[in-house]
Write a protein that binds this DNA or RNA. Structure first.
Length: 321
DNA sequence: TACAAGGAGTGAA
DNA sequence: TTCACTCCTTGTA
């Protein structure tokens, strides 16, 4: 699944211009302590939207960057020209933005005449935006919603809210946005978001802003990556599980392959997988008991079975791709 | 206590 | 009719 990371084109440049290095430093310092901040109080460092227009969304992006890369306490270079997880330096937290292309003899200038710092900032921007867009792509597929929030039905809006709350550990908005469709949602100001959700409305508004910015640049992947979840067809549980398995960076903590060739996978966090499935199907009461019952229905149909050596939470696709 | 297995009823598409 | 949700019982680790 070659998801594209189209870079910065889709997001307004004004939102990507990073402020002085103090902002970057703040963000990176947060990354450095991020590994120790992943306890129950994760909301403490959830990305906060800009408090002032001068601050800009860049700070928010950096916070987002913090969150993404602290999520599994590892650095995964993303975006154009990025390397894989395996190729990462051993101690990334000390210098998460590394310009490996910089001329050996010059630490001041990077290619293109930019200072090393500016070049690094651009790299951070690319990585962050690429990661944001990938998250949007993933959400679009998992939730079976379009990339353009304007097109969302009230049901789609609820899915998006649930997913965003879950993904970014935001306080629940309850029924505050219940009757709204995508068009109405997009027309709301940040203040209106705050009125409906005093605790997380501003962050939700910022996230929606990113979504609104993304479709123009994401037409390529939205059009090119047609699969079961984007086709408008109801998704089956086994398809959903495969989709999660295809996104190890996002969902590897919840479900992962034990033997991809044989189709053997393990549900690492049964509650989270069930919750994601519940969000996807608009079944808030979904739990692992019910999900596993549905999985067991696949035994008879020859879609999923227990592996030869049965283990708890381990299943096997009968016909692995 | 959590998970596995399976029966059975229900409702939506 | 199919599919998944839901509730249930029983058994196992």
């Amino acid at each position: 699944m070659g998801s594209a990371s189209p870079g910065l084109s889709g997001v307004p440049t004004s939102r990507l211009l990073l402020p002085p290095d103090t902002v970057l430093r703040t963000g990176l310092e947060k990354v450095a302590v991020g590994a120790g901040a992943m306890g129950p109080e994760r909301r403490d460092w959830s990305p906060s939207p800009p408090a002032t227009p001068e601050q800009g969304l860049s700070t928010f992006y950096l916070s987002y960057f913090d969150m993404l890369y602290s999520e599994d306490n590892s650095w995964v270079a993303k975006g154009p020209g990025a390397s894989t997880r395996e190729e990462l330096p051993d101690e990334p937290e000390q210098c998460p933005v590394i310009d490996s292309q910089a001329p050996g003899g010059s630490l001041d200038l990077a290619p293109g005449g930019l200072t090393l710092e500016e070049h690094s900032l651009e790299q951070v921007q690319s990585m962050v935006v690429g990661e944001v867009l990938k998250d949007i792509e993933t959400a679009c597929k998992l939730l079976n919603i379009t990339a353009d929030p304007v097109d969302w039905s009230p049901g789609n809006v609820q899915k998006w809210l649930l997913w965003t709350e879950h993904q970014y550990r935001l306080p629940s908005v309850g029924k505050a946005f219940q009757e709204l469709g995508g068009k109405e949602l997009c027309a709301m100001s940040e203040e209106q978001f705050r009125q409906r959700s005093p605790l997380g409305g501003d962050v939700l508004h910022a996230h929606l802003d990113i979504w609104k910015s993304a479709p123009t640049s994401e037409e390529s992947w939205a059009d090119s990556e047609v699969d079961s979840s984007c086709s408008g067809q109801p998704i089956h549980l086994w398809q959903f599980l495969k989709e999660l398995l295809l996104k190890p960076h996002s969902y590897g903590r919840f479900i992962r392959w034990l033997n991809k060739e044989k189709g053997i996978f393990k549900i690492e966090d049964s509650a989270q997988v069930a919750r994601l499935w519940g969000i996807r199907k608009n079944r808030p009461a979904m739990n692992y008991d019910k999900l596993s019952r549905s999985i067991r229905q696949y035994y008879k149909k020859g879609i999923i079975r227990k592996p030869d050596i049965s283990q708890r939470l381990v299943y096997q696709f009968v016909h692995p791709v």
